[in-house]
Amino acid sequence: MYIMKKLSTKQLLISTFIALAMLVFLVSIISLRSLSDSDARFSSYFAGLAERGSIVTEFRSAANRRALAVRDMLVVPTVAERDTFKTFAVGASNELQTYIKKLAAKLAEPGSGSDRERALLAKIEKVEAQYEPVALLIVDLITSGKRDEAVEKINKVCRPLLLEFMAAVRDYNDFIKEQTAAEVSDSAAAYAKQRSILVGLSCFAVLAAIGLGLFLTRRIFGALGSEPADLSIAAHQIAQGDLREIPGAAKARQGSVLASMGVMQSQLVELIGQVRTSADSIAAGSAEIAQGNSDLSSRTEAQASALEQTAASMEELNSTVKQNAQNAGEANKLAESASAVALRGGEVVVQVVETMKGINE
Protein backbone atom coordinates (compact mmCIF):
# COMPACT_ATOMS: atom_id res chain seq x y z
CA MET A 1 0.00 0.00 0.00
CA TYR A 2 2.90 2.35 0.78
CA ILE A 3 4.43 1.66 -2.63
CA MET A 4 1.06 2.27 -4.33
CA LYS A 5 0.77 5.62 -2.58
CA LYS A 6 4.17 6.58 -3.97
CA LEU A 7 3.11 5.81 -7.54
CA SER A 8 1.86 8.54 -9.84
CA THR A 9 -1.68 8.38 -11.15
CA LYS A 10 -0.47 7.18 -14.55
CA GLN A 11 1.71 4.47 -12.99
CA LEU A 12 -1.15 3.48 -10.70
CA LEU A 13 -3.57 3.13 -13.61
CA ILE A 14 -1.10 1.04 -15.60
CA SER A 15 -0.29 -1.14 -12.57
CA THR A 16 -3.99 -1.65 -11.84
CA PHE A 17 -4.83 -2.69 -15.39
CA ILE A 18 -1.79 -5.01 -15.50
CA ALA A 19 -2.83 -6.62 -12.21
CA LEU A 20 -6.40 -7.15 -13.42
CA ALA A 21 -5.14 -8.52 -16.75
CA MET A 22 -2.85 -10.95 -14.89
CA LEU A 23 -5.74 -12.10 -12.71
CA VAL A 24 -7.92 -12.68 -15.76
CA PHE A 25 -5.03 -14.46 -17.49
CA LEU A 26 -4.47 -16.66 -14.42
CA VAL A 27 -8.15 -17.59 -14.21
CA SER A 28 -8.16 -18.30 -17.95
CA ILE A 29 -5.07 -20.53 -17.68
CA ILE A 30 -6.55 -22.49 -14.78
CA SER A 31 -9.87 -22.80 -16.63
CA LEU A 32 -8.11 -24.07 -19.75
CA ARG A 33 -6.10 -26.51 -17.67
CA SER A 34 -9.28 -27.74 -15.99
CA LEU A 35 -10.92 -28.20 -19.38
CA SER A 36 -7.82 -30.02 -20.61
CA ASP A 37 -7.84 -32.32 -17.57
CA SER A 38 -11.54 -33.00 -18.03
CA ASP A 39 -10.99 -33.75 -21.71
CA ALA A 40 -8.07 -36.04 -20.84
CA ARG A 41 -10.18 -37.91 -18.27
CA PHE A 42 -13.05 -38.24 -20.73
CA SER A 43 -10.71 -39.43 -23.49
CA SER A 44 -9.08 -41.87 -21.11
CA TYR A 45 -12.45 -43.18 -20.02
CA PHE A 46 -13.78 -43.40 -23.56
CA ALA A 47 -10.64 -45.15 -24.85
CA GLY A 48 -10.32 -47.29 -21.72
CA LEU A 49 -13.15 -48.44 -19.53
CA ALA A 50 -15.95 -47.43 -21.91
CA GLU A 51 -14.37 -49.21 -24.85
CA ARG A 52 -13.56 -52.35 -22.82
CA GLY A 53 -17.09 -52.33 -21.41
CA SER A 54 -18.43 -52.10 -24.96
CA ILE A 55 -16.26 -55.09 -25.99
CA VAL A 56 -17.54 -57.11 -23.03
CA THR A 57 -21.12 -56.29 -24.04
CA GLU A 58 -20.36 -57.37 -27.61
CA PHE A 59 -18.84 -60.75 -26.74
CA ARG A 60 -21.57 -61.36 -24.17
CA SER A 61 -24.05 -60.79 -26.96
CA ALA A 62 -22.03 -63.11 -29.21
CA ALA A 63 -22.08 -65.81 -26.51
CA ASN A 64 -25.86 -65.46 -26.21
CA ARG A 65 -26.28 -65.67 -30.00
CA ARG A 66 -24.11 -68.77 -30.10
CA ALA A 67 -26.14 -70.46 -27.33
CA LEU A 68 -29.44 -69.53 -28.98
CA ALA A 69 -28.24 -70.73 -32.36
CA VAL A 70 -27.23 -74.12 -30.87
CA ARG A 71 -30.63 -74.38 -29.15
CA ASP A 72 -32.50 -73.47 -32.32
CA MET A 73 -30.61 -76.18 -34.20
CA LEU A 74 -32.34 -78.70 -31.95
CA VAL A 75 -35.87 -77.45 -32.56
CA VAL A 76 -35.95 -76.56 -36.26
CA PRO A 77 -37.58 -79.24 -38.44
CA THR A 78 -35.59 -78.91 -41.66
CA VAL A 79 -31.95 -79.48 -42.53
CA ALA A 80 -31.73 -76.10 -44.31
CA GLU A 81 -32.81 -74.23 -41.20
CA ARG A 82 -30.42 -76.31 -39.10
CA ASP A 83 -27.57 -75.37 -41.42
CA THR A 84 -28.54 -71.73 -41.19
CA PHE A 85 -28.42 -71.74 -37.38
CA LYS A 86 -25.16 -73.70 -37.56
CA THR A 87 -23.71 -70.82 -39.56
CA PHE A 88 -25.02 -68.40 -36.93
CA ALA A 89 -23.47 -70.47 -34.12
CA VAL A 90 -20.06 -70.80 -35.76
CA GLY A 91 -20.04 -67.10 -36.74
CA ALA A 92 -21.00 -66.02 -33.20
CA SER A 93 -18.25 -68.26 -31.81
CA ASN A 94 -15.68 -66.69 -34.11
CA GLU A 95 -16.91 -63.20 -33.18
CA LEU A 96 -16.58 -64.12 -29.51
CA GLN A 97 -12.97 -65.15 -29.99
CA THR A 98 -12.28 -61.95 -31.88
CA TYR A 99 -13.75 -59.81 -29.10
CA ILE A 100 -11.81 -61.69 -26.41
CA LYS A 101 -8.54 -61.14 -28.30
CA LYS A 102 -9.38 -57.49 -28.83
CA LEU A 103 -10.06 -57.06 -25.12
CA ALA A 104 -6.79 -58.82 -24.26
CA ALA A 105 -4.93 -56.48 -26.64
CA LYS A 106 -6.49 -53.46 -24.97
CA LEU A 107 -5.44 -54.66 -21.53
CA ALA A 108 -1.92 -55.27 -22.84
CA GLU A 109 -1.51 -51.57 -23.65
CA PRO A 110 0.74 -49.59 -21.22
CA GLY A 111 -1.21 -48.10 -18.33
CA SER A 112 -4.42 -49.86 -19.34
CA GLY A 113 -6.45 -51.90 -16.86
CA SER A 114 -5.52 -53.36 -13.51
CA ASP A 115 -4.37 -56.74 -12.23
CA ARG A 116 -7.89 -57.59 -11.09
CA GLU A 117 -9.30 -56.81 -14.53
CA ARG A 118 -6.65 -58.99 -16.17
CA ALA A 119 -7.48 -61.80 -13.74
CA LEU A 120 -11.18 -61.53 -14.61
CA LEU A 121 -10.35 -61.67 -18.32
CA ALA A 122 -8.08 -64.68 -17.72
CA LYS A 123 -11.01 -66.42 -16.04
CA ILE A 124 -13.26 -65.67 -19.05
CA GLU A 125 -10.58 -66.94 -21.44
CA LYS A 126 -10.18 -70.13 -19.36
CA VAL A 127 -13.91 -70.84 -19.30
CA GLU A 128 -14.26 -70.01 -23.00
CA ALA A 129 -11.34 -72.31 -23.81
CA GLN A 130 -13.38 -75.13 -22.22
CA TYR A 131 -16.77 -74.00 -23.50
CA GLU A 132 -16.00 -73.34 -27.18
CA PRO A 133 -14.94 -76.93 -28.09
CA VAL A 134 -18.02 -78.31 -26.36
CA ALA A 135 -20.29 -75.86 -28.18
CA LEU A 136 -18.76 -76.75 -31.56
CA LEU A 137 -18.97 -80.45 -30.73
CA ILE A 138 -22.67 -80.09 -29.99
CA VAL A 139 -23.09 -78.31 -33.33
CA ASP A 140 -21.38 -81.23 -35.08
CA LEU A 141 -23.53 -83.79 -33.21
CA ILE A 142 -26.72 -82.00 -34.18
CA THR A 143 -25.54 -81.73 -37.78
CA SER A 144 -24.77 -85.46 -37.89
CA GLY A 145 -28.21 -86.28 -36.48
CA LYS A 146 -27.12 -87.29 -33.02
CA ARG A 147 -29.74 -85.18 -31.30
CA ASP A 148 -30.00 -87.15 -28.06
CA GLU A 149 -26.25 -87.19 -27.53
CA ALA A 150 -26.16 -83.43 -28.24
CA VAL A 151 -28.91 -82.80 -25.69
CA GLU A 152 -27.02 -84.83 -23.13
CA LYS A 153 -23.86 -82.78 -23.80
CA ILE A 154 -25.83 -79.60 -23.45
CA ASN A 155 -27.34 -80.59 -20.12
CA LYS A 156 -24.27 -82.17 -18.51
CA VAL A 157 -21.34 -80.17 -19.90
CA CYS A 158 -22.43 -77.15 -21.94
CA ARG A 159 -24.99 -75.65 -19.55
CA PRO A 160 -22.65 -75.59 -16.49
CA LEU A 161 -19.86 -74.10 -18.62
CA LEU A 162 -22.25 -71.55 -20.09
CA LEU A 163 -23.40 -70.57 -16.60
CA GLU A 164 -19.78 -70.31 -15.46
CA PHE A 165 -18.92 -68.27 -18.56
CA MET A 166 -21.83 -65.90 -18.06
CA ALA A 167 -20.93 -65.55 -14.38
CA ALA A 168 -17.34 -64.64 -15.35
CA VAL A 169 -18.64 -62.16 -17.90
CA ARG A 170 -21.02 -60.72 -15.31
CA ASP A 171 -18.17 -60.33 -12.80
CA TYR A 172 -16.08 -58.54 -15.42
CA ASN A 173 -19.04 -56.34 -16.34
CA ASP A 174 -19.66 -55.51 -12.65
CA PHE A 175 -15.99 -54.63 -12.29
CA ILE A 176 -16.27 -52.28 -15.29
CA LYS A 177 -19.31 -50.67 -13.67
CA GLU A 178 -17.42 -50.23 -10.40
CA GLN A 179 -14.48 -48.70 -12.21
CA THR A 180 -16.81 -46.46 -14.16
CA ALA A 181 -18.48 -45.31 -10.95
CA ALA A 182 -15.04 -44.67 -9.43
CA GLU A 183 -14.04 -42.69 -12.54
CA VAL A 184 -17.24 -40.68 -12.31
CA SER A 185 -16.63 -40.09 -8.61
CA ASP A 186 -13.02 -39.03 -9.24
CA SER A 187 -14.14 -36.77 -12.08
CA ALA A 188 -16.80 -35.23 -9.84
CA ALA A 189 -14.24 -34.70 -7.07
CA ALA A 190 -11.76 -33.18 -9.53
CA TYR A 191 -14.52 -31.00 -10.97
CA ALA A 192 -15.56 -29.88 -7.48
CA LYS A 193 -11.94 -29.09 -6.60
CA GLN A 194 -11.35 -27.19 -9.81
CA ARG A 195 -14.68 -25.43 -9.43
CA SER A 196 -13.73 -24.38 -5.90
CA ILE A 197 -10.36 -23.12 -7.14
CA LEU A 198 -11.98 -21.21 -10.01
CA VAL A 199 -14.71 -19.81 -7.77
CA GLY A 200 -12.08 -18.78 -5.22
CA LEU A 201 -9.92 -17.17 -7.87
CA SER A 202 -12.94 -15.49 -9.44
CA CYS A 203 -14.04 -14.14 -6.06
CA PHE A 204 -10.49 -13.01 -5.37
CA ALA A 205 -10.34 -11.37 -8.80
CA VAL A 206 -13.67 -9.63 -8.19
CA LEU A 207 -12.64 -8.47 -4.72
CA ALA A 208 -9.25 -7.38 -6.04
CA ALA A 209 -10.94 -5.50 -8.87
CA ILE A 210 -13.33 -3.85 -6.41
CA GLY A 211 -10.48 -3.01 -4.03
CA LEU A 212 -8.27 -1.64 -6.79
CA GLY A 213 -11.22 0.25 -8.24
CA LEU A 214 -12.06 1.83 -4.89
CA PHE A 215 -8.42 2.65 -4.21
CA LEU A 216 -7.99 4.08 -7.70
CA THR A 217 -11.22 6.08 -7.43
CA ARG A 218 -10.21 7.40 -4.03
CA ARG A 219 -6.74 8.24 -5.32
CA ILE A 220 -8.03 10.04 -8.42
CA PHE A 221 -10.85 11.78 -6.50
CA GLY A 222 -8.31 12.80 -3.87
CA ALA A 223 -6.02 14.17 -6.57
CA LEU A 224 -8.91 16.06 -8.18
CA GLY A 225 -10.61 17.11 -4.94
CA SER A 226 -14.03 17.07 -6.56
CA GLU A 227 -15.99 15.73 -9.49
CA PRO A 228 -14.52 16.57 -12.92
CA ALA A 229 -17.73 18.40 -13.81
CA ASP A 230 -17.36 20.66 -10.74
CA LEU A 231 -13.74 21.34 -11.66
CA SER A 232 -14.82 22.27 -15.18
CA ILE A 233 -17.41 24.70 -13.79
CA ALA A 234 -14.80 26.24 -11.47
CA ALA A 235 -12.26 26.61 -14.30
CA HIS A 236 -14.92 28.19 -16.53
CA GLN A 237 -15.85 30.56 -13.71
CA ILE A 238 -12.25 31.73 -13.28
CA ALA A 239 -11.76 31.98 -17.06
CA GLN A 240 -14.76 34.35 -17.24
CA GLY A 241 -13.22 36.57 -14.57
CA ASP A 242 -15.54 35.48 -11.75
CA LEU A 243 -13.14 35.36 -8.82
CA ARG A 244 -15.67 34.49 -6.16
CA GLU A 245 -14.63 31.78 -3.71
CA ILE A 246 -14.80 28.29 -5.27
CA PRO A 247 -17.21 26.05 -3.36
CA GLY A 248 -15.44 23.26 -1.47
CA ALA A 249 -11.93 24.51 -2.22
CA ALA A 250 -11.26 25.37 1.42
CA LYS A 251 -12.11 21.80 2.55
CA ALA A 252 -10.36 20.03 -0.34
CA ARG A 253 -7.24 17.99 0.33
CA GLN A 254 -4.07 20.01 0.13
CA GLY A 255 -2.38 19.53 -3.21
CA SER A 256 -5.56 18.51 -5.02
CA VAL A 257 -6.68 20.23 -8.21
CA LEU A 258 -9.64 21.86 -6.45
CA ALA A 259 -7.45 23.14 -3.60
CA SER A 260 -4.91 24.44 -6.13
CA MET A 261 -7.68 26.22 -8.02
CA GLY A 262 -8.82 27.75 -4.74
CA VAL A 263 -5.26 28.94 -4.02
CA MET A 264 -5.04 30.28 -7.58
CA GLN A 265 -8.34 32.13 -7.13
CA SER A 266 -7.23 33.71 -3.84
CA GLN A 267 -3.84 34.63 -5.29
CA LEU A 268 -5.53 36.16 -8.34
CA VAL A 269 -7.74 38.21 -6.03
CA GLU A 270 -4.67 39.28 -4.05
CA LEU A 271 -2.75 40.03 -7.24
CA ILE A 272 -5.61 42.08 -8.66
CA GLY A 273 -5.77 43.99 -5.35
CA GLN A 274 -2.06 44.69 -5.56
CA VAL A 275 -2.43 45.75 -9.18
CA ARG A 276 -5.28 48.03 -8.23
CA THR A 277 -3.24 49.56 -5.39
CA SER A 278 -0.29 49.99 -7.73
CA ALA A 279 -2.57 51.55 -10.34
CA ASP A 280 -3.90 54.00 -7.76
CA SER A 281 -0.34 54.84 -6.72
CA ILE A 282 0.64 55.26 -10.36
CA ALA A 283 -2.39 57.51 -10.94
CA ALA A 284 -1.46 59.68 -7.94
CA GLY A 285 2.16 59.82 -9.08
CA SER A 286 0.99 60.67 -12.59
CA ALA A 287 -1.12 63.54 -11.22
CA GLU A 288 1.87 64.82 -9.24
CA ILE A 289 4.08 64.50 -12.31
CA ALA A 290 1.47 66.38 -14.38
CA GLN A 291 1.38 69.16 -11.75
CA GLY A 292 5.18 69.25 -11.71
CA ASN A 293 5.18 69.40 -15.50
CA SER A 294 2.74 72.30 -15.36
CA ASP A 295 4.96 74.16 -12.84
CA LEU A 296 8.01 73.32 -14.92
CA SER A 297 6.23 74.65 -18.02
CA SER A 298 5.44 77.89 -16.23
CA ARG A 299 9.04 78.24 -15.03
CA THR A 300 10.26 77.34 -18.48
CA GLU A 301 8.12 80.08 -20.00
CA ALA A 302 9.47 82.57 -17.46
CA GLN A 303 13.01 81.49 -18.15
CA ALA A 304 12.31 81.77 -21.91
CA SER A 305 11.10 85.35 -21.41
CA ALA A 306 14.21 86.14 -19.33
CA LEU A 307 16.34 84.52 -21.99
CA GLU A 308 14.67 86.70 -24.63
CA GLN A 309 15.44 89.76 -22.54
CA THR A 310 18.99 88.51 -22.05
CA ALA A 311 19.25 87.88 -25.77
CA ALA A 312 18.10 91.47 -26.46
CA SER A 313 20.65 92.78 -23.95
CA MET A 314 23.31 90.61 -25.54
CA GLU A 315 22.41 92.06 -28.94
CA GLU A 316 22.76 95.57 -27.54
CA LEU A 317 26.04 94.58 -25.89
CA ASN A 318 27.16 93.06 -29.16
CA SER A 319 26.41 96.30 -30.97
CA THR A 320 28.33 98.23 -28.32
CA VAL A 321 31.26 95.81 -28.56
CA LYS A 322 31.26 96.13 -32.34
CA GLN A 323 31.26 99.93 -32.03
CA ASN A 324 34.03 99.75 -29.43
CA ALA A 325 35.97 97.53 -31.77
CA GLN A 326 35.56 100.04 -34.56
CA ASN A 327 36.65 102.84 -32.24
CA ALA A 328 39.60 100.73 -31.12
CA GLY A 329 40.50 100.20 -34.78
CA GLU A 330 40.40 103.88 -35.46
CA ALA A 331 42.42 104.54 -32.30
CA ASN A 332 44.92 101.93 -33.41
CA LYS A 333 45.21 103.64 -36.74
CA LEU A 334 45.72 106.97 -34.96
CA ALA A 335 48.31 105.35 -32.71
CA GLU A 336 50.11 103.95 -35.69
CA SER A 337 50.08 107.43 -37.30
CA ALA A 338 51.37 108.94 -34.05
CA SER A 339 54.07 106.26 -33.89
CA ALA A 340 55.15 107.07 -37.46
CA VAL A 341 55.27 110.75 -36.63
CA ALA A 342 57.27 109.98 -33.50
CA LEU A 343 59.71 107.88 -35.52
CA ARG A 344 60.18 110.67 -38.02
CA GLY A 345 60.58 113.09 -35.12
CA GLY A 346 63.25 110.81 -33.63
CA GLU A 347 65.06 110.70 -36.90
CA VAL A 348 64.92 114.47 -37.07
CA VAL A 349 66.28 114.71 -33.54
CA VAL A 350 69.12 112.37 -34.45
CA GLN A 351 69.93 114.47 -37.44
CA VAL A 352 69.80 117.59 -35.27
CA VAL A 353 72.15 115.94 -32.78
CA GLU A 354 74.54 114.95 -35.45
CA THR A 355 74.35 118.46 -36.92
CA MET A 356 75.04 119.80 -33.47
CA LYS A 357 78.02 117.50 -33.12
CA GLY A 358 79.29 118.73 -36.42
CA ILE A 359 78.89 122.28 -35.41
CA ASN A 360 80.71 121.68 -32.16
CA GLU A 361 83.62 120.09 -33.90
Rank of each mutant, 00 (worst) to 15 (best):
D171N: 06
R66H: 01
K101G: 15
D242Y: 02
G358Y: 04
P133W: 00
F204R: 00
E81Q: 10
S34F: 11
T310E: 14
R65K: 03
N324K: 08
A108P: 07
G48C: 01
A40V: 08
L96V: 07
L271F: 09
S305P: 07
I176H: 08
A328V: 03
A168C: 05
E336F: 11
L23G: 06
S266G: 14
S114Q: 07
K333Y: 08
A239L: 15
N327E: 15
D186F: 06
G241M: 09
S339W: 03
S114C: 04
N324L: 13
A189M: 00
Y131A: 05
A63F: 11
D186Q: 10
A249G: 03
I246M: 01
A331V: 13
I197H: 11
L214W: 04
V263W: 11
V206I: 08
L141T: 06
T84L: 13
L296I: 11
A205E: 03
S298W: 14
G358M: 02
T16R: 00
S187R: 02
A325L: 13
Q179Y: 00
L121F: 00
T320E: 09
R195P: 03
Q254R: 07
L243D: 11
A338L: 01
Q179M: 08
G241P: 05
A135V: 08
N64Y: 12
A304W: 13
N173L: 14
N94Q: 04
S114I: 03
F215N: 05
G248S: 00
G248M: 03
S337Y: 06
E354N: 04
K333R: 12
T16F: 04
F17K: 01
S339M: 09
P133C: 01
E361G: 04
T355E: 12
G329K: 13
K322E: 13
I220K: 00
P228M: 00
A287Q: 06
R65Q: 13
L141C: 07
T143A: 15
Q11D: 12
G345K: 15
V275L: 14
Y2M: 15
A40D: 12
E152H: 06
E149A: 10
V157T: 01
Q130G: 09
L271Q: 11
T78C: 06
L258W: 01
F175M: 04
S305T: 11
Y45M: 14
F221A: 14
R147H: 14
E58Q: 10
G255M: 07
C203Q: 05
I55P: 02
T57W: 07
S54Q: 11
R147P: 10
A229S: 05
V206C: 07
D242F: 03
M22I: 10
K333C: 15
S36C: 01
S339A: 02
E128Y: 15
E227R: 08
L68Y: 15
R147S: 15
V353L: 10
A168Q: 04
A306G: 12
Y172G: 11
G358L: 10
M166W: 08
V257F: 09
V151D: 11
A302F: 15
L224M: 14
I282G: 09
I210G: 08
E308S: 14
D39V: 05
